[in-house]
Design a protein around this nucleic acid. Structure first.
Lengths: 153, 153
DNA sequence: CAGAAGGTGAAATGAATGTTTCGTCTTGAT
DNA sequence: ATCAAGACGAAACATTCATTTCACCTTCTG
């Protein structure tokens, strides 16, 4: 496992917040030389710690203003059924996150949809339509209070 | 509201997946000229559709491998109490997402923590310690099945 | 049909960028 | 205390980049 010193931590922290920083700009932020920053960024990338650079888009600005959380119970836990179901989830682009969870339910899904009608359509035809889904329970977000990608270092 | 044509959509889609694309590289991906891409990206930024560029870091690679979902019920719904509570949530960096939700609970939190002991500490001292929290219910992710930031365009 | 308005691609610009090299310094092991 | 190994910052490099200009083309309006 990769050991991060303070400088690495400052670099990871800075790049999580602004991935467009050049080596020179980053160097200024974290108080080091551009060359050093460049080498460390390369190393952190190869260690798999620094992942891809992406553009953040707020769902609402693309008309996907409704966040839904949907819990799923399966009819059976057999591996093949789960795999097949997961492939369906993977293929549905409004489903942003899927977790297999502890407790009374098997999966927790997070979707960003256009509205209720849109969600109803997806729930019925993409999710409940699957043969190994037994039950679903939906919760709707009234407001997005906090939302960040920044993992504390 | 901003109307996106096909080219805009291809640009937003490409940049959501790779925010490090230069105008020239982007142009190749979406089949347009670098100049055109540059102008459109600028416009999309000013319209607030293209948000910040960030580096993705997998929580597990920083030792934060446990995803927890925590539902909260408040003692009262008065605005001052909610505001105060939300400030606390904002200040806790292991809390990545907070939604105010419909149904039997008031909030849904998503945290990325180091492990159970870490979570217990945060739940007790940061969350339940707050005077207007009545009850909490925690669900633990067994596995991250899907996780994307890409909002379908 | 005429003409304005706006979007387009190609080319040109100077500035900024990634990347390497090198001599020095730090550090940890013996 | 000595040594080797590795990390460091400064400088130099060619390359790539963002940004502007310009002439052309499309597409609506009257």
């Amino acid at each position: 496992m990769f050991r991060l010193d303070d400088l690495d931590e400052r670099i990871v922290s800075a790049l999580q917040r602004d991935g467009s920083l050049s080596s020179a700009a980053l160097a200024e932020v974290v108080n080091a030389s551009p060359a050093s920053c460049w080498r460390r960024v390369k190393a952190l990338e190869e260690a798999g710690i620094l992942g891809p650079t992406v553009r953040i888009v707020k769902p609402e600005s693309l008309g996907r203003g409704l966040d839904v959380f949907c819990q799923i119970r399966m009819k059976s836990q057999d591996a093949a059924a789960r795999m097949d179901f997961q492939r369906v989830l993977e293929a549905e682009p409004t489903i942003l996150e899927v977790y297999s969870i502890s407790g009374e339910w098997d999966y927790l899904l997070h979707l960003a949809v256009r509205g209720m009608a849109d969600y109803e359509e997806i729930l019925m035809h993409r999710i409940l339509a699957h043969h190994s889904v037994a039950q679903a329970s939906s919760v709707f977000a009234l407001r997005r209070v906090k939302h960040t990608n920044v993992v504390p270092v």
